[in-house]
């Protein structure tokens, strides 16, 4: 028996919205420690890794490890039937091929259940090595989204360079070029509005902007985003999910031919 209950159903909606543009079908792996998901986009350029720890749920029961294959667009559509304040419960039998989503209004005067068929998804699991990154930038998530969107009006790729001066986002296109520099800024009143740069070595990498724009669908999950880069690794864009875990996006760089 699997039973996951979340008082803040709206959170689950945001999680699905953050993944469904990048990944169509994925397995939700549930164990006693929580729920996780790892999937690549169809071109294998980006990978999304989600973790929702069991202690972040209001009720979490998972008698047996389960891998539940779902179409993320279908789940997202289904969750749109829940109110933002609804309590959402997922239920699945150990041997069943369906999952039930139950939505309860905050006053408990409306209860809906939607049953969805599970899918058999053959997915490869990749080992993500622990790494020390050359540069880690923490910044407001809305600012990061704004930068990606603004640069995409000019070009398709972005060069992200971290030096002791700050982090520079540059692009070029048919109509011209653009550079946006963000300097470390820790003097603001609220920590979530600060930009913090931890740099061991300067690093400069090139990425396709359209993937970064997909990642910014996670902006509603967190006020801040952390971007980690090393010259020999995919970049990591991480949004923390309060008290529960994270959604991490890995993006393979463009390399000189």
């Amino acid at each position: 028996m699997l039973e996951l209950r979340l008082l803040q159903g709206g959170l689950l909606k945001k999680v699905l919205e953050a993944m469904r543009e990048l990944v169509t079908d994925a397995n939700f792996d549930c164990s006693r420690s929580g729920c996780s998901l790892q999937a690549m986009d169809s071109s294998h350029v980006a990978l999304v890794a989600l973790l929702l720890r069991s202690d972040g749920f209001d009720h979490f029961r998972c008698d047996r490890n389960r891998s539940m294959g779902m179409n993320l667009n279908h789940v997202a559509k289904l969750l749109r039937c829940a109110g933002n304040d609804d309590i959402v419960t997922l239920k699945a039998d150990d041997d069943g091929d369906t999952v039930t989503f139950m939505f309860e209004s905050p006053k408990q005067d409306k209860i809906a259940d939607f049953e969805m068929k599970l899918m058999d998804i053959q997915s490869e699991h990749l080992g993500i090595p622990e790494a020390e990154y050359q540069a880690i930038v923490k910044m407001p998530s809305q600012e990061f989204a704004r930068i990606c969107r603004d640069l995409s009006t000019i070009g398709d790729t972005v060069v992200i360079s971290v030096t002791k001066e700050g982090v520079k986002f540059s692009t070029k296109g048919d109509i011209g070029s653009a550079n946006i520099v963000c300097r470390q800024n820790t003097t603001v009143d609220k920590p979530e509005e600060s930009t913090v740069i931890e740099m061991k070595d300067p690093v400069s990498l090139t990425f396709a902007l359209r993937y970064l724009i997909s990642f910014t669908k996670a902006t509603p999950l967190s006020n801040t985003v952390t971007v980690s880069m090393s010259s020999d690794l995919p970049m990591v864009v991480e949004y923390k999910i309060a008290d529960m875990g994270y959604i991490r996006y890995y993006l393979a760089p463009k390399i000189d031919e």
Partner: peptide, 14 residues
């Protein structure tokens, strides 16, 4: 803009 690498160039299947 360079050649696009893939995630599997960096991470191994387990």
């Amino acid at each position: 803009g360079g050649k696009q690498s893939t995630i599997t160039n960096f991470f191994r299947r387990v």
